[in-house]
């Protein structure tokens, strides 16, 4: 078995990458993870495993990644700085690499106030960019933050997230540049609904030459209902869903709404494929992993090519 990152191979090989998101269960049952693995097998190049997303306790990302790895998928380990200080973060990076995990996505993490235990103490010892830098230093220089040498550096393809839809808009691309300068190999963006704004952002990224320095994967999330669209628009920060999309969802009968959501998602992917500098898509079907295959299929992304 090739023990390197499949995602990396696809991207470096010039392929249009497809990744998907998999949320670990709120319990210790591995079968849920393995079931989701089967849904995604051969539909995507790599699978992101979220890290206690929205600050709700779930199975640890690193364990779920290990399960996926064992199942033969290429996992992307999401790690948030919310819950671990630098010592724990670095230690988990080493552990992940030892378990054969080859991709890591470095994130700040949703604030714990949004979760089900707002009393928790937020750690935020490092921020996400510092974290990217630390991982790169560990991988490329074989050192930890304190300067000590590692007996063996971790082998990881480093990712970071970008949200073109948050404010202040003009600073967003500067932040992207900082992440890339810190060491991000690939970027996965927040879900894209406002293509106009996304294209402006990409234009700025291209102008700064950022698209040549890292692989940018556009994030998409299929909408299940107009209610979900409205909720995301108003309650989830950094989310930009144009009103026309909500109207479009409302314009179809209730039993057709899920179908319409998938349609929109597929159209978005097709548009994204046209955007210069976009090297792939990241499909975040939240607790709806079963549609990922259909979306990939209809977007003409299957079968997945094999590289290396």
């Amino acid at each position: 078995m090739n023990n390197s990152s499949k995602l990396k191979r696809v991207l470096e090989g010039g392929g249009f990458a497809v990744t998907a998101e998999c949320g670990p269960p709120k319990g210790a049952n591995s079968d849920v993870v393995l079931k989701k693995a089967e849904m995604l097998r051969n539909k995507v190049d790599a699978v992101n495993v979220t890290d206690n997303q929205t600050a709700i306790v779930r199975m640890s990302s690193i364990a779920a990644c290990s399960l996926l790895k064992t199942a033969g998928l290429d996992p992307v380990l999401q790690m948030v700085v919310r819950d671990r200080n630098r010592i724990a973060l670095q230690s988990d990076i080493l552990g992940a690499s030892a378990l054969g995990i080859r991709n890591v996505l470095c994130l700040s993490g949703d604030h714990h106030i949004f979760g089900n235990q707002p009393q928790a103490m937020g750690v935020f010892d490092l921020d996400s960019i510092q974290f990217v830098q630390v991982v790169k230093m560990m991988r490329d220089e074989g050192k930890i933050l304190g300067g000590d040498d590692l007996s063996q550096p971790p082998d990881l393809f480093i990712g970071a997230a970008a949200n073109p839809f948050a404010d202040p808009f003009d600073f967003r691309v500067i932040r992207l540049a900082k992440k890339i300068r810190a060491g991000a190999d690939f970027i996965q963006t927040q879900c894209i609904y406002n293509l106009y704004r996304f294209e402006r952002w990409m234009g700025m990224a291209r102008d700064m030459g950022l698209t040549d320095k890292a692989y940018i994967l556009g994030g998409v999330t299929p909408l299940k209902s107009p209610g979900m669209a409205k909720y995301m628009k108003t309650k989830v920060s950094g989310m930009d869903i144009p009103d026309e999309l909500i109207k479009r969802m409302e314009g179809v009968p209730k039993d057709k709404q899920r179908e319409e959501g998938i349609n929109i998602c597929v159209e978005t992917i097709q548009r994204l494929r046209e955007v210069p500098g976009i090297k792939g898509v990241h499909i975040m079907a939240i607790e709806w992993e079963e549609v990922v295959g259909e979306i990939a299929e209809r977007a003409g992304l299957l079968p997945r090519p094999v590289f290396g």
Partner: peptide, 11 residues
């Protein structure tokens, strides 16, 4: 019991 830190770091 674990302390409620939200009063310190409510965000």
């Amino acid at each position: 019991p674990p302390k409620d830190w939200s009063k310190k770091q409510g965000g």
